[in-house]
Design a protein around this nucleic acid. Structure first.
Length: 307
DNA sequence: GTCCCGATAT
DNA sequence: ATATCGGGAC
């Protein structure tokens, strides 16, 4: 038995009906987001990068503000990295590295590709910060030319509906098998909408009128387990938290000495203590490696700034 | 305190 | 393979 047909055995025999039910359900009614009104790859990419880390309802304002400030990839490419990172922090968008990636991707498009966007997932994957998920999302929503996206929503849906084993390669194969060829735009919107409104962590099958109830393994058995998600380290007191504070402070202050910075990110900062200069130097050095911050000596005194 | 969530670097 | 990367909602 080939790999392909193994994937097919996960799915109902009447795949066409399954596909049609979902697309009709989506087209009949769905949440409205502004990025669903555009086919501009730059605008789509910005929305996808923001959505990877932030709840959708909070992304709307940030997305509008971002495009207001940098309306095109060329505008973003010409911006100072520090301004983009500061924007990210001001809008509480989390992982600052993604602001850097977005800036770098805009530079790649503008400087290396003459403003031309790749129109397929393979080409899009060459952009900084664009992995398999984002490549397929942009290819789908901008060009209707992607493969099935596989994010945690999709995994949860496939796991529950068709009892797909919790294995990345299998999710990829089944998701691809299930997608109606050539309809990635509506399909990927629809299946993620399903994961968002009907098949979330706590499912709402009847309330959301899930179109797959008649085929759904979980609906039949009552077992709505979802694939395991890796457990989280606590944020409070983490180095992430302090990195965030540093970037936020440097967004508001052109440059700061190490000790000033130290005292403002934690009350128990003492230059020679456990969480003192040495500790702070470590954080700053990682931030510098990430290309977010630079540290230089000024009058024999180390100062940090956003880069 | 728990959940969310993909990409990169190593 | 695995560690790392934020911060708000609940």
């Amino acid at each position: 038995m080939t790999e392909q047909s193994e994937a097919a055995t996960q799915l109902p025999a009447d795949v066409d009906a399954v596909q049609q039910a979902l697309v009709e359900w989506y087209e009949d009614d769905h949440r409205s987001f502004p990025w669903r009104e555009t086919e501009d790859p730059y605008e789509i990419l910005v929305s996808e990068v923001m959505s990877q880390q932030t709840q959708l309802n909070r992304v709307v304002d940030a997305w509008r503000d971002f495009l207001d400030r940098w309306p095109t990839a060329a505008d973003l490419a010409g911006a100072d990295r520090a301004d983009v990172v500061a924007f990210w922090t001001d809008h509480s968008l989390g992982y600052n590295n993604r602001a850097k990636y977005l800036h770098e991707a805009a530079r790649q498009i503008t400087d290396e590709r003459g403003g031309e966007w790749p129109r397929d997932p393979e080409g899009l994957s060459e952009l900084m910060g664009v992995g398999p998920y984002t490549a397929n999302a942009v290819a789908s929503f901008a060009f209707d030319n992607g493969d099935a996206v596989v994010d945690t929503n999709v995994k949860r849906v496939l796991y529950r509906a068709f009892d797909v084993p919790d294995d990345d390669d299998t999710f990829e194969r089944v998701a691809s098998e299930l997608m109606p060829a050539g309809s990635s735009r509506v399909w990927n919107n629809a299946i993620m909408e399903l994961g968002g409104v009907a098949c979330g962590k706590t499912p709402d099958c009847d309330g959301a009128a899930c179109p797959w109830r008649e085929w759904c393994h979980a609906y039949r058995t009552g077992d709505f387990t979802a694939p395991d998600v890796p457990e989280q380290p606590s944020f409070e007191g983490s180095r992430r938290q302090f990195r965030g504070r540093i970037v936020r402070l440097l967004g508001d202050n052109e440059e700061m000495t190490l000790d000033t910075l130290g005292h403002r990110i934690r009350v128990d900062y003492t230059p020679d203590g456990d969480h003192g200069r040495e500790w702070l130097r470590g954080l700053l050095s990682d931030l510098a490696d990430d290309g977010l911050v630079s540290v230089d000596e000024r009058d024999g005194n180390p100062v940090a700034r956003l880069r």
